[in-house]
């Protein structure tokens, strides 16, 4: 189950939920990888934002 924990840690890091940087991300090129990840997210957001619906809990 170790790989599951590692995957969880990675996802939480990529999602901005944890400050703990995964070891393989902590190298000298980490900040470039981060920019690539941001670009991937920005690209997805731009392409998918059209269908934007209300957040469900806004109406509560």
């Amino acid at each position: 189950m170790n790989w599951l924990l590692r995957l969880k840690h990675w996802l939480e890091f990529l999602g901005g939920a944890t400050d703990a940087v995964p070891r393989s991300f902590n190298g000298p090129g980490g900040w470039v990888l981060l920019a690539v990840w941001w670009m991937a997210l920005v690209g997805l957001i731009t392409l998918f934002c059209r269908q934007a619906s209300k957040f469900i809990y806004i109406d509560f």
Partner: peptide
């Protein structure tokens, strides 16, 4: 910013 972008995605 990472958290916000991930949330939007």
């Amino acid at each position: 910013c990472t958290r916000i972008l991930a949330g939007l995605a």
